[in-house]
Amino acid sequence: MSIKKQTLKSKPVCKVTFRIPKEMAPEANEATVVGDFNNWKEEVTPMQKLKSGDFTVTMELSQNQSFQFRYLVNKSVWINDEEADGYIPNAFGEENSVVNTL
């Protein structure tokens, strides 16, 4: 998995690209990124499936903030990003990934 960040000079946002490689979710037919930035609504931020089998989406997030998130694969499997900026325990006894736009 990977997270790419690009700070924009024209406005106070950071373009963040989230990516799930095919190897991390080989059986995936669909994936979404769910987190603080979309009020944990599972249907709001679908990821695009590439020809390679990877999933990706780019979002504009506010600068100088930390956001918790997870990936939801096939509407049933939650996975974290191995390259997240950090991890925070959640209420379900698991961890959420963290991305910082600092």
Rank of each mutant, 00 (worst) to 15 (best):
V44P: 00
L50G: 10
W78Y: 08
N80T: 12
V99S: 08
V13E: 00
Y87V: 09
E30R: 12
N90K: 04
E83L: 10
N64W: 02
E83H: 14
N29Q: 15
V34T: 15
K9M: 11
E82Q: 11
V34L: 09
L8V: 02
V34P: 04
Y87F: 12
P89V: 05
F69A: 07
M59E: 09
K51N: 13
A28G: 06
V73I: 15
M47S: 04
T7F: 10
E94G: 11
S76P: 01
A91V: 07
V99D: 08
E27C: 05
V57I: 13
S76K: 09
A91P: 01
Q65S: 09
N80V: 02
Y71E: 01
P89H: 06
E27Y: 13
S66V: 01
V99G: 09
L61S: 01
T58E: 13
P46R: 10
Q63K: 13
Y87P: 10
I79D: 05
T17K: 13
S10A: 14
A31K: 06
R19Y: 02
W78A: 05
A91C: 04
N64I: 00
T58S: 15
D36Y: 10
P89C: 09
V77K: 12
N80F: 01
T32G: 00
Y87A: 13
S10G: 15
A84C: 08
P12I: 00
M47D: 07
K51W: 04
T45W: 01
V44H: 09
K75H: 12
I79R: 05
V77E: 10
G53M: 14
Q63C: 01
V57G: 05
N90D: 12
V73M: 03
V77M: 10
A84P: 05
F37C: 08
P12W: 00
N39Q: 13
N38L: 14
V44S: 14
K5V: 02
M59G: 00
Y87H: 08
P89R: 07
E60L: 07
P26W: 03
E82M: 09
E82H: 06
E27K: 15
P21G: 02
T56N: 06
Q63R: 11
E95P: 00
D85Y: 01
N74V: 06
G93S: 07
D85K: 03
I79M: 14
P46W: 07
L8R: 14
N100W: 00
A31C: 13
D81G: 06
A28S: 08
T7G: 03
V98C: 05
P26N: 04
N96Q: 08
E42M: 13
L8M: 12
I88W: 03
E43G: 03
F69H: 07
D54Y: 03
Q68A: 10
N64T: 03
T17Y: 03
C14L: 00
T32F: 15
F37A: 03
K22L: 15
E42Y: 10
V73S: 03
V57Y: 02
K49A: 09
E94Y: 09
T32L: 07
P21R: 07
T56Y: 12
T32I: 02
K49C: 11
F18N: 06
A25M: 07
Q63T: 00
D85T: 05
Q48F: 12
K49M: 15
M47P: 07
P46M: 05
A31Q: 08
N96R: 08
Q65R: 11
K11R: 14
Y71H: 01
N100P: 00
F18P: 08
P46E: 09
F69N: 06
E43D: 14
I20K: 13
I88H: 06
E23H: 09
E27H: 13
S97D: 04
M59D: 01
